[in-house]
Design a protein around this nucleic acid. Structure first.
Length: 300
DNA sequence: ACAAGAGACGAACTGAATCG
DNA sequence: CGATTCAGTTCGTCTCTTGT
């Protein structure tokens, strides 16, 4: 048999009939007249090819047929699921929700915000919430969000596509880092010294040029990028094993204060914001709002 | 190409009456 | 007493047309 959308109302009526075993009481419960429910019962009988409810021998109410009894529990459970699916879209309970949040972010940002998010998901008390982190490749990111494949982008504010909504999460200041015991000594570098050093650059695209190099070019200077790596987490190991230096957010480098020394840059570099961005389609989604609230409230 | 509005038609509702 | 039938009314859906 085929269930048309309009038959869903009939199934709600059948559920009430099977719970009441009485057309009059079921009609009152459904806020329709008894004749209207009687007509619905006739349509249900036609739909299922079964009387479903027959008058009881006592003359009091109706009794379900075997077919109706077989339908009863599954129908009730299915309608409860439907009700839960459409109930109060404003609320999101992380302890009960079944949802996977997909977030695009580099490993530094995952460390800054993602770890705390994972901690909160683990503490939510439920088993249905999951988080997935993927590379923040900006290509096609809006389309992936439109398709529902990606929930959130975390990254430098200036790299966020115009089509997305965004709010800043933190402000980052850049410093230079070198290994402890670096032969260069412990004095902050001059601009000339800075440019003479060999640099490690983090670039997910494998580019040997960043906004910092553009800034140096504006100053009539140039540095030597010797190594490009795709992840921040590789940088401390490379610095520890070479005399290379790296210019990264101070918040990241301070985590390695035991093995790295950090210095003020010999030129002005504007602070930049890490922002979270999402597609407008997710703006009013309760689960998405919960996700954004968690990230916004992370204390750095 | 898609969305919105108008008119026609049929399904489903109601109250009243009837049946078992 | 409770289910069903009947006649009139209301509501929803479908199709076509128009506008963006």
């Amino acid at each position: 048999m085929d269930i048309r959308p309009s038959d869903l109302a009939l199934l709600v009526s059948l559920n009430a009939l099977l719970e009441e075993n009485n057309v009059t009481r079921a009609a009152a419960r459904l806020h329709i007249s008894q004749p209207a429910l009687s007509a619905q019962l006739a349509r249900l009988r036609d739909l299922f090819g079964d009387p479903l409810l027959v008058p009881s021998e006592s003359g009091r109410g109706m009794v379900p047929t075997a077919r109706a009894l077989a339908l009863r529990d599954g129908l009730r459970d299915s309608l409860r699921l439907l009700e839960a699916a459409v109930r109060d879209p404003e609320s999101f309970d992380p302890a009960r929700a079944e949802r996977t949040f997909m977030i695009a972010a580099n490993d530094n940002v995952v460390t800054m915000f993602g770890i705390e998010l994972v901690r909160r998901i683990a503490a939510s008390g439920g088993d249905g919430l999951r988080a997935g982190f993927v590379e923040p490749n900006a290509d096609g990111i809006v389309a992936r969000m439109e398709r529902g494949e990606l929930d959130l982008l975390l990254g430098a504010a200036q790299t966020i596509p115009q089509a997305l909504k965004a709010v800043p999460l933190s402000s980052e200041r850049y410093v230079m880092a070198q290994r402890s015991g670096h032969p260069r000594g412990m004095r902050a570098p001059s601009l000339k010294q800075f440019c003479a050093l060999k640099h490690v650059l983090v670039s997910g695209r494998g580019e040997f040029h960043s906004f910092l190099d553009q800034r140096l070019k504006d100053l009539g200077q140039q540095r030597q990028v010797a190594v490009v790596v795709p992840h921040y987490s590789l940088v401390p190991t490379i610095l520890a094993n070479t005399d290379y230096v790296c210019t990264l957010p101070v918040r990241f480098l301070q985590r390695f204060s035991g093995q790295l020394d950090i210095f003020k840059l010999p030129f002005d570099l504007p602070e930049f914001a890490i922002a979270m961005a999402w597609h407008p389609r997710s703006e009013h989604d309760a689960g998405h709002r919960w996700l954004r609230e968690q990230l916004k409230s992370v204390q750095l």
